[in-house]
Design a protein around this nucleic acid. Sequence first.
DNA 1: GAGGTGCCTTTTTTT
DNA 2: AAGGCACCTC
Length: 768
Amino acid sequence: MVRKFAAMHKYLEGLNEQQMAAVLHMDGPLMIVAGAGSGKTKVLTSRIAHLINSGVDAFNILALTFTNKAAAEMKERVEHALGNTEARNLYIGTFHSVFARILRADANKLGYPNNFTIYDTDDAKSIIKETVKSLNLDDKHYKPAYIYNRISAAKNALVGYAAYKQDMQIQQEDSRSNRPLMGDIYEAYAKKCFKNGAMDFDDLLFNMYVLLTHFPDALAKYQGRFRYILIDEYQDTNVAQYAIMKMLAARNENICVVGDDAQSIYSFRGATVQNILQFQNDYEDAAVIKLEQNYRSTRTILEVANSIIGNNKNQIPKNLWTDKTEGDKILLARTATDNDEGRFVADAIKEQMMRNHYANKDFAVLYRTNAQSRSFEESLRRMNIPYKLVGGTSFYQRKEIKDYLAYLRVVVNSQDEENIKRIINYPTRGIGKTTIERIIVRADELNTTFWEVIANPEIDGLRSSQTNAFVTMIQSFRTMLEKQNAYEVAFAVGKHTGLVKELYDDKSVEGVARYENVQELLNSIKEFTETPDEEGELQDKSLGSYLQQITLLTDADQDKEEDANAVKLMTIHAAKGLEFPCVFAVGLEENLFPSAMSMYDRNDLEEERRLFYVAVTRAKERLWITYANSRYRFGSLVQNEPSRFIKEVPASYIDTTYTGIGNKGPIGGNTRGGGLFGEQSFDKVPSLKKLADKLAAPKPSTHTPTADFAADDTTDLQVGMQVEHQKFGFGKVLTLEGGTQNRIAAIDFGTHGVKKIMLNFAKLRIVK
DNA sequence: GAGGTGCCTTTTTTT
DNA sequence: AAGGCACCTC
């Protein structure tokens, strides 16, 4: 039977028994528990291909992925597996983008304009901040970030503001945290967004739920359309997402979820592993298939991963195994500072490329927080190793882009007070703060919108030649909307507002970059309008349609040169679902990883550990774990203990000779505090680059001191200072040790190496 | 109303 | 280290 299928369909080739069962299972609820690297994506794509091949219309299949990128990839792979274009009719996307698309058709049922604006996190926080101020509350105490998270959590649990204010438990929590007016802020914020004709990310889920519960015809329509539903990364879904999917699937119960509780790393976004248990309760006849063979990593890496995750109490038992070879041991490296960590990684990459013939793209550096990227960027740049930063500050978060998009959003949806305020005086046209405030007050008095006050001739007293000019301009763009596509409108906006010219005239380095960014934005809009229509479905090329998508895109999705031969730098969160031959898991320090915020709660700590597990399981062949004794945080140097997770790596799997740490102290047990030890040991094995440098350019035997060289008093010498030595030249103080009478400094003199200098005797000039 | 200066906070992770 | 914001002066 199986063999027959295998002979018939290419997409069934090479599947193991469990994978095959998951692919061939067609009707009824199915849960696939897929361990890391167990061929999950292959199973999902084969399954979709099989459904289509068995006669299911692609139009009736809904697949929800975690990122747009994953969606695009899945579509492509199904297409490839089938060898025809049927896959193009699949409804694949993230929860947010799929729901946004649906709401774009039905938002008016809920009282929103159909081309509602989508607010990103920054937009939302700034509205919250305003709201807090308008309620005369202190935004130092009612911090926008905190409020945003709290509201987000509520919406993701399907708790609206009315329910929020009535919920005893929630009210207690808020009074305990001394924020009794949280509920009022939630209400005011929600009303403001509604009035602006805007939804934040969480509203896309919340309103989708409202739509399906309040409008039976809508529910029936989508239940009829989505007869087969697949959910990827199921462990990262939240209550709202689950409730929606359950409703959509209620008619046919052809719902297939794929997830791994060990990789659940988004609880801060409301995701709950509870959904995995809930699924089995709600669908008692659900088939459950476990994929436990790992095809990705060496046995060493997999064993390490298993033993790390074994420290978690809460988990679904599984036995991830591999028949791969043992592979190399894990390399553990300690460095003195974050900069040294950067240098160490760049050196190791160079060395691996020469020794084992890896390409740039075979490496990934994975960190806990985006802020850690800097030292790696610097060291890679210095060594001319191409790298690509994945994620981080989004293109769409840049000021010039937000300004431009604000114009476009106002043209499409003029209810949006937030974006009007952003642009009404940019470029400056003499409409200041006072005027804006008066308009807001007036709009409140008349219970109308900001736009109505300035656009409606019947409301007198506030319009001026300036506001009139603004209104006329926006209206002229709006008349273009019907006949012209997104690019034509956007181009006109840039031209007539003076936005493009203003940036063009700014010839500073940043100004040029901003101008280029805006050009890039225009290019992306052009590309959007020129992308050919998909078979069967005429694509909407309007500006409204463009804006709908843009907010839900992330940089990772935008990545056109993902195959570019470059080292990838990203957070572990961003690395989910990816794999690399060589992985550096960096910054394994207490307070950083695990994060300081997670240390006092068992669940949070277990999530951090799962995150570490995700990092380790990205590696196919080689894995490095690094940490620094001290690093800069908020501009000042802090000391960190090695992460507790390091101790969870069995010592037998660790290669310590490379860094020289092993025999001199317990793994991860460096309590000496000083950085000398790490620095020295790191220098013992010079990288090939350093070696090459030494051979190529014999160092000058002496340094010619600066003309006015004079030794300074070194009593106040601090780590990090730049000094000049008569013989060794310029250097940087790495560490200081010894008592006040007999201090010894370790100073990095670049080509002259790291020298220990006794400060009592040495003549040093302090450069800065 | 515009523009500049200095102080303050910030970093978890993302749709 | 850097960006945002309040406050200041013109």
